[in-house]
Design a protein around this nucleic acid. Sequence first.
DNA 1: TATTGTTATACTCTATAACTATA
DNA 2: TATAGTTATAGAGTATAACAATA
Lengths: 161, 161
Amino acid sequence: MKKPLSEPDLPMEAASVSDGTLRSLHGYQIKRAFNVIQSDLNRTLKPFKLRMITYTALILIVDNPGLRQSQLAEAMDIERPNLVVIIDELERRDLILRDRLPSDRRAYALKATLAGRRLCEKAVAAVQAHEERLLKGINPDALRTAMKVMQLIEANRHRET
Amino acid sequence: MKKPLSEPDLPMEAASVSDGTLRSLHGYQIKRAFNVIQSDLNRTLKPFKLRMITYTALILIVDNPGLRQSQLAEAMDIERPNLVVIIDELERRDLILRDRLPSDRRAYALKATLAGRRLCEKAVAAVQAHEERLLKGINPDALRTAMKVMQLIEANRHRET
DNA sequence: TATTGTTATACTCTATAACTATA
DNA sequence: TATAGTTATAGAGTATAACAATA
């Protein structure tokens, strides 16, 4: 929706797209913003061979050593099966490791390796630059408000089948 | 991230996930909100056999009769090839039709059928209820601010490369 | 019985290259 | 040559059922 209203050189038959807000669909604006963030972030993370989802998993493991996969999946709000391949990928690259919990031999304690912590810190710096770029010109109060709104939306999740 | 901090009955080995904001990653909060919206909306649209993306295309065609596919793709911020299957689906269900433009026989003028307009209006009502539910308790000013922030993020899209 | 991690699978959304028919 | 729509395809995210090992 870069061109908000009518273009001068369109033939009569072609309509102009009504500007901005789709009626009754705030969700689509959030989708568009998210797509921009995701593709820009993935470009930023490419040199580290990380994606948004693997970066998120790595940073949570670095910041919360000993996390179980089920806890991490809940924290990331993804399904357990989908986390497995992410953990596999990080483990194969020796960025994290799966330690068996003696107290519960079904579960793993996830821990970052030194290499994982180092890569994470470098990636964090790049991501900070990415966010500065993408959030440039946005009033910090407005941004805080927006993030609070995102949390409220998440909290209003509809759980009944 | 429903449980913000430590759970009382966890064994010592298990760490608690640090609450809320992932350091330097506003994007992930937006992702989570979007996922909630998308899955709730798709559930809402299921009785109409629509999804977020087909609903969006339909409403834009209803509101902008004569739209070309390329214009619609740009308005929805998706790639032209991905729009084709969406238009196919709506056309197969006789909700819209592709009219050849006499002035440019490469292009189509997209128009909603009566059935399409009727389904659209019913879906709009359901979506309004969905958004009321999901945005319940959110200050309208805060919501407006959040939507403006989403637009600004979209406008800061990184285009080089 | 219930839970942790796993496998397999299916569906959706996104992105790109290459084609056709028109301009 | 450029553009509108199309085909084919690949990649990534998400969701569910069912299983083995363990609780």
